[in-house]
C-alpha cells in the first residue's frame, strides 16, 4: 500500500514535469550523455594563454605591463584618433563611438551612452580595446599600449588620474561613474496571463 502511494506520487511528479514541458530537458541531461568519450586532446597552459585574452572586473586576466595618460595620448593620436576624433567624440561617418561625455545624461530623456557615462567596469575597456581595436588592425596593440590608451581615455573622462600608472593592480580599483547603473532582468514585466 505504502509502496503504491510512492509510485503514484512519483508518476504524479513525472506527469507534472511533462505538463510543464521540463521532461525533455531531464531526459536529455540525465540520459543523453553516454560518455566519457575522451575525444580531443588536453589543452596545455601555453595553448590556452595564446587566446585567453579576457579581463574581468576583479582584475583576473589582466596581463603584466603598464601605461599612463601621457604615453596613451601618443598611442591614441597614432591609432585611434582617425575614427574616434581628437575630442574623443567619434568622427561622423566612421561608425566609431563617442568615448567621453554624457555623464549624468542617462535619466535625462536624452541619454548619451559613452565609456564615461555608461560603461560599468574599467576592465571592459581594457578587454575590448585589446581584443577588437583598432578597427583596421584588431589585436595589434601591445599590452603596454592598451594600458596606456585606456589610461588616456579614462583620464580624458576625468575618471583616472592623469599622472598615475595603469596596470593590473590599479585598473580593478577604478570606480566607473555608472558602476551601479545595472539591474537584473525582471521580465516578464507585462502580465496578460489567462
Amino acid at each position: 500500500m505504502f509502496t503504491n502511494i510512492k509510485i503514484s506520487s512519483l508518476l504524479g511528479t513525472l506527469l507534472l514535469s511533462l505538463t510543464l514541458g521540463t521532461f525533455p530537458v531531464i531526459s536529455f541531461a540525465a540520459t543523453g550523455y553516454g560518455g566519457p568519450y575522451n575525444f580531443g586532446m588536453p589543452a596545455s597552459a601555453a595553448e590556452i594563454a595564446l587566446i585567453d585574452i579576457d579581463a574581468m572586473p576583479d582584475g583576473r586576466g589582466l596581463p603584466s605591463g603598464s601605461g599612463n595618460y601621457q604615453k596613451g595620448k601618443g598611442v591614441y593620436t597614432a591609432k585611434c584618433m582617425g575614427c574616434h576624433g581628437a575630442d574623443l567624440a567619434g568622427v561622423k561617418g566612421t561608425g566609431a563611438a563617442a568615448l567621453i561625455g554624457g555623464r549624468g545624461s542617462l535619466a535625462s530623456g536624452k541619454p548619451k551612452k559613452t565609456v564615461e557615462s555608461y560603461w560599468p567596469y574599467a576592465s571592459t575597456v581594457f578587454d575590448y580595446v585589446k581584443r577588437a581595436m583598432p578597427f583596421n588592425a584588431p589585436g595589434s596593440l601591445t599590452d603596454d599600449e592598451v594600458y596606456a590608451v585606456v589610461a588616456y581615455v579614462l583620464g580624458e573622462a576625468n575618471i583616472f588620474d592623469k599622472s598615475a600608472s595603469l596596470n593590473a593592480k590599479s585598473l580593478p580599483m577604478i570606480d566607473m561613474p555608472n558602476k551601479d547603473g545595472f539591474i537584473s532582468d525582471p521580465r516578464p514585466d507585462v502580465f496578460n496571463y489567462e
Binding site: 535619466a107 541619454p111 555608461y118 571592459t124 545595472f182 537584473s184 525582471p186 521580465r187
Partner: peptide
C-alpha cells in the same frame, strides 16, 4: 554592458 543592455526611464539599465 555597453551594448545589449536595456536602459530604462530613470537611468538604470537591465
Amino acid at each position: 554592458t555597453s551594448k545589449y543592455t536595456d536602459l530604462l526611464d530613470g537611468g538604470k539599465a537591465r
